[in-house]
Computed example of a mutant assay.
Amino acid sequence: MKAKVESVGKLFYWNHRPSDPAINVHIKINNGEGEIGISYGMRMVSVRLPYEMYKKLEAYAKARGKTQSDVIREALEHYLG
């Protein structure tokens, strides 16, 4: 199997289907700790939030045992339909 592998500092991306950048495996190494993630059909979007909104998002997600990304996706799904 051919794959495209990129290294950005201590973050590595592996895409087993270079024709579809939405399917990726990423490996993040930080102070000897590792994290592996797989994204299928997801695109990354970066947004800037006012500090108070960020703190509300952080508390809301933590209280429900969800990631901030999960909360934002659910809110957008509700808003956009």
Rank of each mutant, 00 (worst) to 15 (best):
V8W: 09
V8G: 04
Q68K: 14
V45P: 00
L76A: 14
Y79E: 11
H26W: 06
G37E: 13
A61C: 03
Y54P: 00
R17A: 11
S69M: 00
E77M: 10
M1S: 13
L76M: 15
W14P: 01
P50G: 03
G9P: 06
H16P: 14
N24H: 08
G32E: 02
N24T: 15
Y79A: 13
Y54I: 02
I38M: 14
E35R: 09
N31F: 14
K28L: 05
V25K: 01
Y13R: 11
G34Y: 07
L49G: 10
R43F: 04
K62P: 01
V5Y: 04
I38H: 09
R17D: 15
E6M: 10
E58F: 13
E33S: 06
H78Q: 12
N24Y: 05
Y51I: 01
G65I: 00
E33K: 12
L76Y: 05
R73C: 08
A22T: 15
S46R: 13
E35L: 08
L11E: 09
D20T: 00
Y51Q: 11
N15I: 09
S69V: 05
S46D: 10
S69K: 02
M44G: 09
M42L: 11
G81H: 03
E52R: 10
K10A: 12
K56P: 01
N31E: 15
R73I: 15
I27T: 03
N24E: 14
K56F: 12
R48M: 08
K66E: 13
K56Q: 15
I23L: 11
G37V: 03
Y54Q: 04
R73Y: 00
P18Y: 07
Q68M: 13
K28M: 07
R48E: 10
A3K: 07
G9V: 09
G41D: 15
G37W: 02
I29S: 03
Y51T: 03
S19V: 01
W14S: 06
E52C: 01
A3I: 03
P21R: 07
I27P: 00
G32H: 10
I27C: 12
R17H: 07
V71F: 06
L49F: 14
I29M: 05
K55T: 10
S39I: 04
A75R: 05
H26T: 14
Q68T: 02
A61Q: 05
S19C: 02
M44A: 11
